[in-house]
Nucleic acid binder design. Structure first.
Length: 324
DNA sequence: TTGTGTTTTATTGCCTCC
DNA sequence: GGAGGCAATAAAACACAA
């Protein structure tokens, strides 16, 4: 290390001057210097390098202890080597200086040492240790900030989870309602058909498609785009529906009237020419997207929901996609 | 008084920069 | 290669409870 080693030439000089044995620490010479402004009762543990230029004020003032007589000298010489803490004033002064700038340029170091009656190396060490303490504190602060941020994000996340669950149950509730309504309508229509069937048993069965009756019921002609094909375009084939081999629409019950804003959508698809995919697309095109979330939007955290059915059973989902 | 934990001062070895 | 910074560490000083 470049920093001076303890007990350089000046110490040898002192030992010679004071007849101090080599085993006796030199700092004992500098205890209780009443004349040093910041020296207090405990400064300077050792003399070190700085090229033997450690002749600051305190050095010579401390050396004045010789004036106190042999008694005192004896006391000093027989004190064991001890670390000396800086006085409160010295620490205060250094703290102030540290606040201004936590790096220590050589000039400032020399000046501080001179002002405080310390070795420049002591000042340097004090700054080094002070920087280490500052870094530790800084780490603690950073940790606090990160921890608070984490807690906040966690709370936010938990709120979102709650909201998600709430919305989920809402969707389930609404879908149940829709299904119940569907069943109700189905039963109603079946009842009507039963009555009509009895009445018209002797008469020629009507070839009138259900779609017409529904449309008339709405009191207007419905122009509806289904799968890119206008309702009028497919109406020519609708008379076949009742005779179709399709197991889904033979009774006409599943013709649906869907309210969507101001528009009434009447849909009675002829799916006989459609592939399964097309059927799926058709089904989905008639429903709000939230009922058919994209696969990548699905939450797979719950394995029971891996089919992305938003709480509907597989059967329910199949029913929906096929019935409409 | 003593044991123990914390703080402060100082050392050591390594690294980077000029 | 010297100067200075830093992390790790030692050890003295200090605080405090039992």
């Amino acid at each position: 290390m470049a920093a001076g080693r303890p007990f350089s030439d000046i110490t040898t000089f002192l030992r010679n001057q004071t007849a101090l044995p080599t085993s006796q620490p030199l700092d004992s010479l500098f205890l209780s210097s009443s004349t040093a402004p910041f020296l207090g009762s405990r400064s300077m543990m050792s003399f070190e390098g700085e090229g033997g230029k450690g002749c600051n004020g305190s050095f010579f003032r401390a050396f004045d202890i010789d004036e106190n007589g042999d008694e005192c000298m004896d006391e000093y010489f027989h004190q064991p080597e001890k670390k000396r803490r800086l006085s409160a004033n010295q620490v205060q002064f250094l703290e102030k200086s540290f606040e201004e700038e936590n790096k220590l340029e050589p000039e400032r170091k020399t000046k501080l040492a001179k002002d405080l009656g310390l070795q420049p190396r002591q000042v340097a060490i004090w700054f080094q240790n002070r920087r280490a303490r500052w870094r530790t504190k800084q780490l603690e602060k950073d940790y606090e900030i990160l921890h608070d941020s984490f807690e906040s994000l966690k709370a936010n996340y938990e709120n979102l989870l709650k909201e998600k669950d709430k919305l989920k149950s809402e969707v389930a509730h609404l879908s149940e309602k829709v299904l119940a309504r569907e069943k109700e309508e189905e039963q109603l229509k079946q009842g009507e058909r039963g009555t009509k069937g009895l009445q018209e048993q002797d008469q020629e069965p009507p070839q009138r498609p259900i779609l017409d009756s529904v449309s008339e019921g709405e009191g207007s002609k419905v122009s509806c785009v289904v799968g890119g094909c206008k309702q009028e375009d497919i109406s020519s084939a609708r008379s076949d529906i009742l005779d179709s081999d399709s197991p889904h629409y033979t009774d006409g019950v599943h013709s649906a009237v869907l309210e969507h804003g101001d528009s009434s959508y009447v849909f009675e698809p002829d799916q006989s020419d459609m592939s399964q995919d097309e059927e799926d697309n058709l089904s989905k095109s008639l429903y709000p997207s939230y009922l058919f979330p994209k696969l990548e939007d699905a939450d797979y955290s719950d394995p029971t929901e891996s089919s992305c059915n938003f709480g509907f059973s597989e059967e329910d989902h199949a029913l929906w996609t096929w019935e409409y």
